[in-house]
């Protein structure tokens, strides 16, 4: 008989066994029933899955993973697992919970009653270089100097201009991020700055916010955005499970 594994979605605190319905990853042709495997008040949210089956990062697998986390989040604080964890069976899940119980408790306490809100700020301009040159005299002067002559600028000069631009971009990002985090000080318990993914991004910050203070946070976004010039576009999303704040590495082997 082939062993049935358990796919893991996340960890919650619960005094009772819970059933979240058939919203899990597909197992044997139908959506898996999502329920808890519990040790005391620490529970893993799981569904049946082939123990030897591969979990490829496909939409059909990623969607239910995320949907389950969001469903569980409605009524509990969940420490989400990274996509793709399959235990060989329920016993193995129990073993992992027992072995890491203290760490899990600590992590659940830290994020208890909190959600993650993400704030992304962008420079909403057509040409980011042009925007910086127009606001930075030193950059403008140097640009005019090397491009204003009859002969074309040398490679070294272009590199120097590029370097200056990069440096300004970095400094500006740091300063604005500091300013924003400062402005949100009263709204979060922790924050995390992620590296920006493109040139026009000013910042990408995740905040750990009390579930009840979510509205306060949202209002604050509008207030803070109002203190910035029109070139700054604020984009926020959430509530998310505290993905950015989980630092849990569970061990399965005895230490």
């Amino acid at each position: 008989m082939p062993a049935t594994g358990r796919y893991l979605y996340g960890l919650i605190r619960s005094e009772n066994d819970r059933d979240f319905g058939c919203i899990g990853l597909t197992h044997e042709g139908k959506p898996g029933r999502v329920y808890t495997v519990r040790v005391g008040s620490v529970a893993a949210v799981v569904s049946e899955y082939g123990a030897r089956e591969k979990v490829l990062p496909l939409r059909k697998n990623l969607d239910p993973h995320h949907q389950v986390i969001r469903e569980v989040m409605k009524g509990a604080t969940i420490v989400p697992m990274t996509f793709g964890h399959v235990a060989k069976g329920e016993d193995e899940v129990l073993k992992a919970l027992r072995r890491n119980r203290d760490d899990i408790q600590t992590e659940l306490d830290r994020v208890d009653g909190k959600v993650e809100m993400t704030l992304k700020v962008k420079w909403d301009v057509d040409n980011i270089f042009e925007y910086f040159v127009s606001t930075d005299e030193e950059l403008a002067t140097f640009r005019d100097q090397i491009f204003g002559r009859s002969q074309a600028p040398s490679q070294a000069e272009k590199i120097e201009l590029g370097r200056m631009f990069e440096e300004r971009l970095g400094t500006e990002r740091e300063e604005q991020t500091e300013r924003v985090v400062e402005a949100f000080q009263s709204c979060f318990s922790e924050f995390k700055v992620s590296p920006v993914k493109n040139e026009k991004s000013v910042m990408d910050v995740a905040f750990l916010v009390d579930r009840e203070r979510q509205k306060v946070f949202e209002e604050r976004v509008y207030q803070v955005a109002g203190t910035f010039p029109a070139q700054y576009l604020f984009d926020f999303s959430g509530p998310w499970a505290p993905f950015n704040f989980v630092e849990l590495d569970l061990h399965t082997a005895a230490a």
Binding site: P80, K88, E107, F243, V246, D249, L250, H251
Partner: peptide
């Protein structure tokens, strides 16, 4: 992001 489990006995992280 999220919690991870390491150790080769029980859990396999497939495809990730």
């Amino acid at each position: 992001k999220g919690a991870v489990i390491t150790g080769d006995i029980v859990i396999s992280v497939a495809g990730v």
